[in-house]
């Protein structure tokens, strides 16, 4: 039934090249990447550092110039989608503006969109409820823990109801306990909002636990080396990690790295 859903993101023969500033060599950050992502799908982009997973995410978000190939998002170019403000991005660190309270941080994208004030206030409250920070709206970023800050980042990304949520190793700096909790929160939010999510990570367990499909990237040059379907039952809980299937899938994903 998933197959019948329309294609949200289509990447064809995408290449991204840099010139090494020291010796003038051409570095292939991404080479001939092909990928189709369906609406509402949870995709994990998995790979070691330097495999171009962040570059791929940034290329989709139109924050990175591409060299050749094409990306289409909902039948449009990434630039068009960006200019229509339909991306929500969560970065490696929360990127909260420390002169703004939690509420005003979440509010920021809506200010850029020119959403009327009354509506903004309503939406901020809704978003803070979604991420479980109802009582922290008036706090400033430095008064929150790392996990809470990242939740604010997620709330901010979702505030403008983006078509696509791009997450770049959002939990990599957090401790295991916080991470587990945020995984469950993220799955709940994903189910409630039905967004297409691209989630960059270098953690195999994290990728398998969260995603519908794990896209394995390998470095030098950055390319897709495998795509693994994750058929773990939904909704997933921490118990899912104890099932034999989870272990099998983790092994399967790990195998795809062998020989890289």
């Amino acid at each position: 039934m998933e197959q019948t859903k329309e294609i949200d993101i289509k990447i064809e023969d995408l290449c991204v090249q840099f010139e090494d500033k020291e010796n003038g060599d051409v570095v292939h950050a991404l080479k001939n990447v092909n990928l189709e992502i369906r609406q509402g799908e949870f995709i994990a982009l998995l790979g070691p550092s330097g495999c171009g997973k962040t570059t791929l995410l940034r290329a989709i978000a139109d924050l990175q110039q591409t060299s050749s190939g094409s990306i289409s998002v909902k039948g449009q170019t990434p630039r068009q989608i960006r200019l229509q403000k339909k991306f929500g991005i969560v970065f490696q660190n929360p990127v909260l503006y420390d002169w703004r309270s939690v509420r005003r941080n979440v509010c920021m994208p809506m200010e850029l969109l020119g959403v009327p004030k009354k509506e903004r206030t309503k939406q901020v409250t809704k978003m803070l409820e979604l991420v479980g920070l109802m009582n922290f709206g008036k706090k400033y970023p430095h008064q929150l823990s790392g996990g809470m800050q990242q939740r604010v980042g997620i709330a901010r990304a979702l505030a403008i109801d983006p078509e696509i949520l791009l997450m770049d190793e959002p939990f990599s700096a957090l401790d295991e306990f916080t991470k587990e909790k945020l995984h469950l929160d993220l799955l709940r939010i994903w189910k409630q909002t039905n967004k297409t999510i691209l989630f960059v990570t270098h953690n195999i367990q994290e990728a398998v636990f969260l995603a519908d499909r794990v896209v394995v990237l390998s470095p030098h040059p950055g390319r897709v080396s495998a795509v693994v379907d994750i058929d773990l039952e939904r909704p997933r809980s921490l118990e899912s990690k104890n099932t034999p299937r989870f272990a099998e899938l983790v092994t399967k994903v790990r195998r795809s790295f062998e020989g890289i």
Binding site: R82, F87, I89, V95, P109, L112, L113, I160
Partner: peptide, 20 residues
């Protein structure tokens, strides 16, 4: 880091990046 990217991802102009 990334705070400029954040605004750019919302298609913010140079002026907006200055102000915000």
């Amino acid at each position: 880091p990334f705070s400029e990217d954040l605004l750019k991802s919302y298609a913010a102009s140079k002026k907006t990046i200055f102000m915000k």
